[in-house]
Structure formats: C-alpha cells, structure tokens
Design a protein around this nucleic acid. Structure first.
Lengths: 224, 224
DNA sequence: CCTTGTCAAGAGCACTGCTCTCTTTTGTGC
DNA sequence: GCACAAAAGAGAGCAGTGCTCTTGACAAGG
C-alpha cells in the first residue's frame, strides 16, 4: 500500500521538482515578471493546464520559489561562515561576502525575495523562518564571544522589541546592541539591493570596495 | 502660430498628464504588476490604442512614473528639511522622517523606484539626477557646519570613488566621512524597504521606534 | 474484471500589450 | 471660405497570458 502510494507520490514529487527547476531557470532569464506557466509547461513537454495539478496558481509557484530562495541564500551564508574556529570578526566578514556573492550570482531570485512583493503578498508565515537564516548566521557569530556590550539610550518601544528578540534568540546582548544588529542586518541587504538594483551607478559603481568597507565598519558598529 | 500650436500641445500635455494621473491611481490599487493600459484607457473613456499616441509602450509609461516618483520623494525630503535655521542634526532627523512618511503614504510608488527593477530596465540616464535628490538633501545638512571629520583606513578603490564624489558635490569631507554618508543613505532606504516589504515582521514590527533610533545613530555615525 | 481515482490533453474564456487600417477632427496656408 | 495635411481617436486583429472545465487514457485496489 505504502509502496504503490509512494510510487505515485514519488512521481508526483519528481515532476513538482522539475517544474520548479524549469521555473527557476526561466526566472534567471526573464525575471519574475516574465515567468510564464505556459512556457514552463511547453519546455517540459506538457500542456499548460497540467501544471495546475501541481501548483494551484502562478503566485503559489512563485511563493514556493521564494521559500527556496530564502533557504538558498541562508545556506550560502552558513557555508561562507568559517565556523567557531575562526575569529568572530572574520566570520562576520565572510558571511557578508558570501551573502553578497550568492545575490550577485542569482540576481532574479534575490529580487524575488528582497525586491517589491509582487504577488498577492506571499504568506509571511511560510517565509519568516527561512528568511531569518542569514540574520541568524550573523548573530551566531557573536554569541560565544566576549562581546563588549554597548550602552546607549533606547526608546521604550524599541527596548521592549529588543528584549523579546534576545529572549527568542537566547543571546546575551543589551537593547542597544540588538538595535545595532538590526541596523547591520538592514545595511547588509540594503547595500546588496542598492548594488543589484542600480542605485550605486552614479556613486560607487563597482561596489565591491564599498561593500567590503561597510562590512568592516558594521562589524565595529555592533561591537566586533 | 505659436498660439495654435501651443493650443494643440496644451491639450496634448493635459491628456498626457491625465493618463499619468490615472495610471498612478491604479498603481496605488493594483501595483505595478497589475497596471493595465487598457484599464487606464477605459477609465478615461478612450480606446486602448489611443494611449499609444502618448506613450509608446507600457514600460515607457512606467519609466515616466518612476521619474515622477523620484522627484516626489525628493521633494518630500526637501520639504521636511527645516532649513539652514535649524541645527544640522535636527535637519538630518527631519529628512529621514519625511522620506519615510512619503514612502509609507505611497508604498506602490516607492516599490516602483526602490523595489526590483521590473520593466525592461528603466533607462538609468533619466533617473540618476532625480534619484539623487534625497541623498543631496542629506548631504546639504552638513556642508556648512563644523563637521568633525572622521579618520579611518579606506581602501584605494573606495578612496578614489569617494574623492570623485566630493569633487562632484563640492563638499569638504574626507573619504571615510563620504563612505559613511553612503552607508547612511543605504541604511535609510534599506530600513524603509525592509519595513514596507515586510522583512521586519518577526522582529521590529511597528518599526517606528527602530527607524527613529536608526536615524539618530546614523547621524552620530556620520559625525553629526 | 471492473470500479475508482489520478493525470494529461484540449478547448475555451477573459484579459493583456501592441500593431495595423480607417475615419474623424483640427489647425493652417491659399 | 475652403481645400489640404497633420494629428488623434476608433476598431479590428494578432499573439500571448492565467485559469477553468470537460473529456479521454491509464493504473491501482477490491
């Protein structure tokens, strides 16, 4: 029973994966805007309506690709991390670099997750966890290190949010440090987005040096 | 001669504006993805092909809206600036706040300019100047003030880019300060994008306090 | 064997951007 | 005042889209 059922399900899972792979391929060519279900089906030797056996809508396909992309960039960040053997600052810089490298290698997938939310607003529920992987990798960098905590006035609302985060992450850091981590996280993806979306064209066009410099300054900024 | 000609041209300019206005209205409803030339024409009591007398393509219409949006957010930043009478730090904070307020009031227009570049890549040439208005407002904040210059190692490529910028802007600031200004600029729009695009959902959901705090910390960061 | 559920195919609907051709309007020089 | 030319709108049509519905083939389970 389970054998036959898994036979069917295996075929189903396989084709589902093939559809996603082909969609990802087309994404790299024409971007999310130009992704066409009919073209995907055509390439796979299927008729367009067959796709709907596997994905209820184009937006749902895109949402699945979004989750995959979050996991891919998260894994890239984790892979770039040299691990606990290296100095925290080196780990931090490596993660920044690795994250950017993935984004530059997969610009359309990056735009899918960090660009404008094109579809009928992808369910945040499914994306929250994979979306935090890069941030988590950065945070892990400074959990087991002598982190010089930073003092500073933090308004009460932000202080409360920061304390909720420290509890959830199990990290030993004051509200000011947590705020700075959030700013660094914002800086990382802000810089990648500005670079990929062409905002640096008039100022720091090959943005490599600027990005590396930002990584260092933000490391200092959070106390590394 | 010029009178009659300008009569035609006035009518033409008027209808061109009406098309853009209606398009902007629909943009607020359905976003850039859902903007339809036929729907715009329908709403204006025109037939779809008539639009093409005014805009050669949908992408060209979007490009025009992009330029308008850059100017609108730039003007919002300039309006928020209390001017040379106020303290530089106050001006800085006001500009941050004003920029964010505009973005929150016009999320789809913001996404059009700072989200993923959806169309056939809008000509950067037309957008570079209006795109720099917010950054310019921020820079103006600290031109005529005793700006304590910040020292710091800056890699040669970045140093060269920074020096080109100082010359172009006519600003008295060392490469490290210019780099930090670029980071602050990135932080401003990175934070707005993260807020609008839902990346702060799991962490600092009403992001007001965090944003205001970031504005202060980045003011210090650039030497204000 | 025969029922039952799964899947792909194909036609079709309503919509899109865009391109033609045709007709109407509008301003101008004679 | 009138013929002429330029400009602008109307309408049909093309190729493409997402999506729905019905129909026919196939394989698994009783």
């Amino acid at each position: 029973m389970t054998a036959t059922r898994s036979a069917r399900e295996r075929a189903r899972a396989e084709l589902t994966q093939e559809i996603k792979d082909e969609a990802r391929r087309q994404l790299a060519d024409v971007g999310a805007h130009g992704l066409s279900l009919r073209a995907v089906a055509r390439e796979l030797g299927l008729v367009s309506s067959a796709i709907y056996r596997y994905f209820p809508s184009r937006d749902r396909l895109l949402t699945d690709l979004i989750v995959d992309a979050y996991n891919a960039i998260g894994e890239a960040a984790e892979q770039a991390d040299p691990g606990t053997g290296a100095a925290p600052r080196e780990r931090w810089l490596a993660i920044w670099q690795g994250t950017r490298d993935w984004a530059r290698a997969h610009p359309h997938e990056y735009a899918l997750i960090y660009g404008s939310p094109i579809p009928g607003y992808a369910a945040p529920q499914d994306t929250v966890v994979p979306a935090s992987r890069v941030a988590l990798a950065l945070v892990k960098t400074l959990t087991h290190t002598e982190l010089r905590n930073i003092d500073g006035e933090v308004p009460p609302e932000l202080r409360a949010q920061a304390e909720t985060l420290t509890k959830a992450l199990g990290i030993l850091a004051g509200p000011e440090t947590v705020s700075r981590l959030l700013m660094a996280w914002t800086q990382l993806f802000g810089a990648i987005s500005f670079d990929l979306f062409g905002q640096y064209v008039g100022s720091v066009d090959p943005a490599d040096a600027f990005f590396a410099h930002s990584a260092k300054r933000m490391a200092e900024f959070v106390g590394l």
